[in-house]
């Protein structure tokens, strides 16, 4: 009797197991569940909390007010709209200011100025763009050499030499830059050969230092994807182009470069995103005039004590990053 029920119970178990194993979703659920749980609870939920905070208000003692009557777009308004303006007027001033800043010639569309937050956001994007362009201009020729011209015996070694610094400690490498840019360093003594520069000059705490740090840290992220796509190019296309009368430059511009474009785009996104969102590099290498949006966020959650504004700034920054990824995907790029 007892044995019978036991057997039938295990029979039901076996049937259940068999049905579960046949079900198309079982494998997916089992494999997804741990990560979905972890990312849901310890990544998305915290972001949701922060998102909620970005609609809150700062109380008199720096606390965050989240009661329904306090919720609103006021932090985003403070971020984007200059004090004394209406919504439309403020938007116009911001856009006009941005156009004035971007066009290379003198143009006066507005007497007003964008909010300090918007100016900081633009500056951060500018740093990101400059770091990306410099990395591309410096990194592309090197990637071309590694991917196409380097003797095959040394190719792996040369690539590993690009990868190694990327694995070595980030903070230590920033400190190394600091050692070079400080007054009386080896570099400054070398530069003192030039007229008008003394060895006791320090290049630290400047925009130059921040940009140099960004390029130094992120340039492997440009070199490696470009190298990977150049290595895959079938260079007989280039020969074909030259047989058909293209000179070397034309063959490069019309054949080789377009074929390497996936690597260039991937590298640009990989350099731009961490550069625009940098926090440690401007903190350690920059001065008061070279802080970025990441520092603003940290300040709002620290000494400035306006958490809702910091939360709003975080989401504005992430919006910029999503836009750059969207642009990348529109251009035909794929994630990973």
């Amino acid at each position: 009797m007892g044995r019978d029920t036991k057997r039938s119970a295990s029979g039901i178990d076996a049937a259940l197991v068999r049905r579960l194993r046949r079900n198309q979703y079982t494998g997916a659920v089992v494999n997804l569940a741990p990560s979905a749980f972890w990312l849901g609870v310890f990544f998305l939920a915290p972001l949701a909390v922060m998102f909620l905070f970005s609609f809150g208000q700062r109380g008199a003692f720096g606390e965050v007010l989240l009661a329904p009557e306090n919720l609103g777009l006021q932090q985003y308004r403070e971020f984007f709209i200059p004090d004394d303006r209406s919504l439309i007027g403020g938007l116009w001033v911001t856009i006009a200011w941005a156009i004035e800043a971007i066009v290379p010639f003198e143009l006066s569309l507005t007497s007003g100025q964008a909010t300090p937050y918007v100016r900081l956001l633009f500056k951060s994007i500018g740093y990101g763009v400059v770091a990306t362009v410099v990395s591309l201009v410096v990194g592309y020729p090197m990637a071309y050499y590694l991917g196409h011209l380097a003797p095959e015996r040394y190719q792996n070694l040369l690539v590993v030499l690009v990868i190694l610094p990327f694995w070595a400690s980030f903070l230590v490498r920033i400190y190394a830059i600091q050692l070079l840019l400080s007054a009386n360093s080896v570099l400054m003594n070398a530069l003192a050969v030039l007229p008008g520069i003394g060895a006791d000059v320090s290049l630290m705490n400047s925009r130059f230092a921040v940009l140099l740090g960004l390029v130094y840290i992120w340039i492997p992220f440009m070199i490696l994807p470009v190298y990977a796509s150049i290595e895959e190019i079938d260079f007989t296309y280039r020969e074909a182009a030259m047989d058909l009368g293209a000179d070397r430059l034309e063959a490069f511009v019309h054949v080789v470069f377009p074929l390497s474009k996936p690597g260039v785009m991937a590298g640009s996104v990989l350099v731009f995103i961490p550069s625009a969102g940098a926090y440690v590099i401007p903190e350690l290498l920059g001065g008061t005039d070279s802080q970025m949006i990441g520092n603003l966020i940290a300040d709002q959650f620290g000494s400035a004590g306006n958490w809702p504004l910091g939360a709003a700034a975080s989401f504005v920054l992430m919006g910029v990053m999503l836009l750059s990824i969207a642009a990348y995907q529109r251009g035909g790029g794929e994630l990973a």
């Binding site: 990544f43 915290p46 972001l47 922060m50 995103i273 969102g277 940290a298 975080s314 990053m321 990824i325």
Partner: peptide, 10 residues
């Protein structure tokens, strides 16, 4: 992708 500062603070 997201900036570490945002991840840390959230």
């Amino acid at each position: 992708i997201i900036p570490s500062i945002v991840m840390g603070i959230s």
